[in-house]
């Protein structure tokens, strides 16, 4: 599953990803509020618990539609079920880093760097069984612009002036 010269991306997919970032802002906002009443561990624990219930409800509502579209799919390896462990560790690392001299802005900026570097490696070698992708020069230029803009906002914009 290699895509040597990446095909033109579907603009709807890009918009969906951009909108997903908006969901993340809302999520961080609410979870942060819960964390202020309790603590970071409680906030993440409660979010995972209510999320589990919400996912079950959604699956129940969408079941008739899913049953119609069910087809033969490749078997999932056991490790593919463990993405939640990675998320749980992230919570602990982040709450430690936020309470260090790095503060929120430093933690966000370094986390962004870690995430982007990992995603480049993941695409290059198709890590964890997903398709390989190679970026072209325009992708790299877009990356520089988006990262520069994000760094400006994190370090000099939101709540840090």
């Amino acid at each position: 599953m290699t895509t040597p010269s990446a095909p033109r991306l579907n603009p709807l997919h890009l918009l969906a990803a951009f909108g997903t970032g908006g969901l993340l802002t809302l999520m961080v906002h609410f979870n942060g509020e819960l964390g202020r009443y309790g603590n970071a561990l409680f906030s993440s624990w409660a979010a995972h618990g209510t999320g589990t219930v919400a996912a079950l409800l959604l699956l129940a509502v969408l079941y008739p539609w899913r049953a119609r579209n069910a087809g033969a799919k490749p078997h999932a390896p056991l490790w593919a079920y463990l993405g939640g462990i990675s998320g749980a560790i992230t919570v602990m690392l982040t709450s430690f880093a936020v309470n260090s001299p790095l503060a929120l802005s430093g933690t966000l900026a370094l986390g962004l760097a870690g995430q982007v570097i990992f995603s480049i490696v993941a695409d290059r070698w198709g890590l964890f069984g997903l398709p390989m992708r190679r970026p072209d020069r325009r992708d790299l230029a877009a990356m520089v612009l988006i990262l520069a803009g994000s760094a400006l906002i994190i370090l000099f914009g939101r709540g840090n002036a």
Binding site: L9, F18, G21, T25, I153
Partner: peptide
């Protein structure tokens, strides 16, 4: 859903971009 369609780099960058813009 997105990562299988547009790859890890595009997903990460666009989600980060959307998070920043909506945060502002």
């Amino acid at each position: 859903w997105l990562i299988a369609r547009i790859g890890a780099v595009n997903t990460a960058l666009l989600v980060i971009g959307g998070q920043m813009v909506s945060g502002v």
